[in-house]
Design a protein around this nucleic acid. Structure first.
Lengths: 356, 356
DNA sequence: TGTATATTTGTGTGCGTGAACATATGAATA
DNA sequence: TATTCATATGTTCACGCACACAAATATACA
């Protein structure tokens, strides 16, 4: 058990017969350096396998990094409220370090709001950003601006192929649909048809929801569960009495015995309809541990929830950025979260365990 | 958006009209301090809400903390292999910081080995320890020693009421049994009896396994699933041909249609029997994503796994200790992991996502 | 060869805290 | 009142790195 004394810049300098500043220049390739010096320093670096002391490094450059988080207003939607909570938690976590984290909220239902808020975020002059790019076109446009200003960013929740983020944090939507299918298929006992419900107010999301549906349908197809007929319904704009009526009519008309809802908000809206109309024998699979969803799960109306863990997505997003900026740690290019299955007996274990 | 300049010890000292050393003494309550000075410093501290700069703090105290991990030999058992992997990962994660992490492995099947290895770990003179206390009596004895030497420790995997650890990391066993029950109950279609299999080689664990069984039985009782008869079987010492024969006899004799296995190793051992004897229609619920278990899940022999996440338990244990020692962050007293449900369609999402 | 200028290298200080060491203060004792 | 000693407080440097600034060396040109 040899006691290694850590190699410092000073040691490298001595080995290469130069000053610490020269080593520093090599390390951060700034300033000009003679071939000869460069070679000697690089040699020493390689021989020793020098690793900078990140602690000292951060302390030395007394820079305060600014991170801007751009996401939908938490007040308007419980899903985004959870994301907001994740960012808040991250703020606490990193409060002792040289980072300032500022949140910028846009209106989930207004594209123009995204543009404006993105502007505000830029005015903050962040060193890096965490973004939930729910509006596709506007987001892509914004990424262009970020690129021109060479501001690195991490995306979460929604992936956008055209983007070039440092990292994407989210879930595999297709596979998520398959999980929903497996859950539903297991729980279904009586015959009948299956409903896939897309309930969303931001049309932008439609394409992502279809991805879930594709996974869902594929599972049934591959497993030769063709006795079930899968019917999908789109509710682009939500309006309570009308929504309730339409859903109810559809359920009765099409003899639905199982429902897969592709959104978190849609989950409790649908549950509410089942609850009010005493249709608890219909199996319901939805998304996320929102307050209302938890309630309906305790009540037995919702059978399964697939947890997208918005809180953790946001938390990890910030954490990745801090590590990236302060400690030059490269986050994974894509971090696809596990597809967590929540049901009656394990929901509490998820509620009470911290931010895992 | 006010730009806060961080308050430093120096500032506090100025406010209180004393030197930085005095403030330092108050902060770390070492050395003697006059009432008057103490009061003034405390006041300044509270007024400003002073938070130490952890970066500078770590750099300043150039101490290298030593952490010893005491756990079963990863080579002997795939479950503990995963714990070992978690510690390895933690080692990487913290390699740049002033901590040395050393692992000490004991033989899972020999109490005496625990004692000896614990001695060796002590000889390493750790500042803190992470322990998997699988041998109850020996562990309790060892905790006494640690207490007398005032070495703080964190327990994982197995909880021991008599211990006074900084933190315990593990799962709620009772609730875990209930989850197993819910899974099994959902998947069961045909009638028949249910088997609870305890397969273990370290008798010490028996009491913990019974806790899972209690949860399992309670679920069935509370949900009035009394058409199912639950029979439990104990296999204290494993011996292949004999085990296979006995299990098979029991399954046939008692008309078993569903099995709940309380251990991770037992899961694939049981799966192997089902597989060899073409009994795939029996529903099998087991524990943990061991290599063999994963294989049997892909194959459809194992229907559900409850993930205890040994890798993450160990990883988090080390991380908590590092934060505790270096940054004086208090970990939660108990960190009960969520009861993760693994099945065919979401297992990959767990395998491919990092250390969540 | 001397001077101006570009290029390369070196020195020193600050970051905020920890801790060894030095000093001041006041009480007890001779 | 002088001396001793415990107690309370202050000074200073180290930690390892970043970076501004100063210095040295090389090159160009008259």
């Amino acid at each position: 058990m040899t006691e290694f004394k850590n190699i410092r810049i000073k040691d490298i300098a001595a080995m290469a017969g130069v000053s610490v500043a020269t080593v520093d220049r090599v390390l951060h390739n700034r300033g000009k350096i003679s071939e000869k010096a460069l070679k000697k320093v690089v040699e020493a670096l390689e021989q020793t396998g020098y690793k900078p002391n990140l602690i000292a490094s951060t302390l030395g450059s007394n820079k305060v990094y600014k991170i801007a988080a751009l996401l939908p207003d938490p007040v308007l939607d419980d899903y985004w409220n959870q994301s907001g909570a994740g960012i808040f938690k991250a703020k606490e976590e990193w409060s002792q370090y040289n980072v300032r984290i500022e949140s910028f909220y846009f209106n989930l239902y207004e594209k123009s709001s995204f543009r404006e808020t993105a502007e505000k975020a830029l005015a903050y002059e962040p060193d890096s950003m965490l973004i939930a790019p729910v509006f596709h076109r506007e987001a892509v446009e914004f990424f262009g601006v970020l690129k021109s200003k060479s501001i690195p960013y991490i995306l979460f929740n929604t992936n956008i192929p055209e983007a070039e983020p440092v990292s994407f944090i989210g879930q595999d939507l297709y596979q998520s649909g398959r999980v929903g299918a497996e859950l539903l298929a297991t729980k279904l006992v009586k015959d009948g048809n299956i409903a896939v419900l897309h309930i969303y107010e931001d049309i932008q999301n439609a394409v992502h929801l279809k991805e879930k549906e594709r996974g869902f349908r594929d599972y049934f197809m591959e497993n030769k569960l063709d006795s079930f007929n899968i019917i999908s319904y789109d509710f682009g704009t939500y309006n309570e009495p009308e929504f309730d009526r339409e859903v109810l009519t559809a359920l009765n008309r099409d003899k639905i015995s199982g429902i897969f809802v592709s959104t978190s908000k849609g989950s409790y809206l649908t549950a509410s309809v089942l609850d009010k109309n005493n249709k608890r024998d219909i199996v319901l699979v939805g998304y996320d541990m929102l307050k209302d969803n938890i309630h309906y799960m305790y009540d037995g109306v919702i059978n399964y929830l697939i947890n997208q863990n918005p809180r953790k997505q946001a938390f990890l997003g910030i954490s990745y950025l801090v590590n990236y900026l302060l400690f030059r740690k490269q986050p994974p290019v894509t971090d696809l979260f596990p597809l967590e299955i929540i049901m009656h007996e394990n929901i509490k274990s998820y509620l009470y365990s911290g931010l895992h």
